[in-house]
């Protein structure tokens, strides 16, 4: 958060005055995450499973908690909050209600193992943070953003964003070049867990994104993965389901074609 804050405060795009002004008063940053699928594979958890959803829920809650804490501390240190903080739900304390009144549930050993050093945030911790925020305010109007990373992830040996991998060995056509990219740490033993996005149940995918979205103050761009066997009604159903679950945007729909052999095979 500090690093992003420094970038924001050191940046002044003078040729776009509106951006320059917004940056000066709102201090928005976008802390994000990547390598969800890679991490789940290493933790032995299937993407889309109940454990994977509990993991992302607990992990994103912690990210939200610590980014708020950092923002509060920066506000305290700089003695400055974002513009009209006083009128926000952070200042009124409403924002924290769902966290303070949440049901503290037992996580499975698999989820705890996957969380590693990430603490599980308790109601008491939220209560304390609320008090601190009410006292010192927040420096950033917006803090979190999960970008649909691709190339950046791969350079870091990560899978993209919080999305499932599109192919175990990805054929990647970007700009005018083609890269063949095997997923990070792919082996014969873990390839089963590297479920390709087109084989992930789309409703589980939406549930997973919805669990993350609860803790993110900006919209997460979610991609749907379908095959050419899908009709418009099935697509509409997935969109409607996503909306009911609080997904902010279905960013794109990627489509995979079945081969003619597959089409014929599924008819006979």
């Amino acid at each position: 958060m500090r690093l992003l804050t420094n970038v924001s405060t050191m940046t002044d795009i003078v040729n776009v005055p509106s951006v320059s002004k917004a940056n000066k008063v709102m201090h928005s940053v976008g802390l994000g995450v990547m390598n969800l699928h890679g991490h789940l594979v290493q933790s032995g958890i299937r993407y889309g499973s109940k454990d994977s959803i509990e993991f992302i829920d607990a992990f994103m809650e912690a990210l939200n908690y610590y980014s708020l804490k950092a923002s509060m501390e920066i506000a305290k240190q700089k003695n400055e909050t974002f513009y009209r903080f006083e009128e926000s739900e952070y200042a009124s304390g409403v924002y924290f209600e769902t966290y303070i009144n949440k049901e503290e549930k037992e996580l499975t050993p698999e989820v705890i193992k996957a969380l590693g050093g990430t603490p599980v945030i308790t109601k008491n911790m939220w209560q304390q943070l609320k008090a601190d925020v009410l006292e010192h305010g927040l420096f950033h109007s917006y803090r979190l953003a999960i970008a649909p990373t691709g190339s950046i992830s791969y350079i870091r040996s990560c899978t993209a964003s919080i999305s499932p991998v599109t192919e175990r060995v990805e054929v990647r056509d970007y700009a005018d070049s083609r890269t063949i990219y095997p997923m990070p740490f792919l082996t014969n033993d873990n390839q089963e867990l590297y479920t390709e996005a087109y084989e992930v149940n789309p409703y589980e995918l939406i549930d997973l994104y919805a669990a993350a979205q609860k803790h993110v103050d900006q919209g997460i761009s979610m991609t749907l993965y379908v095959t050419d066997q899908w009709n418009t009604e099935q697509l509409a159903k997935a969109y409607i389901y996503a909306w009911t679950k609080g997904i902010k945007t279905v960013y794109y729909v990627r489509q995979r074609l079945l081969t003619i052999e597959e089409c014929v095979a599924c008819q006979i």
Binding site: G150, T166, E167, E170, V171, R172, D173, Y174, A175, R178, Y252, R254, Q255, R256, L257, L258, T259
Partner: peptide, 12 residues
């Protein structure tokens, strides 16, 4: 293989 590749929405 004609199942397609993962490509960049912005340029292709």
């Amino acid at each position: 293989s004609n199942t397609g590749s993962t490509y960049d929405f912005f340029s292709q």
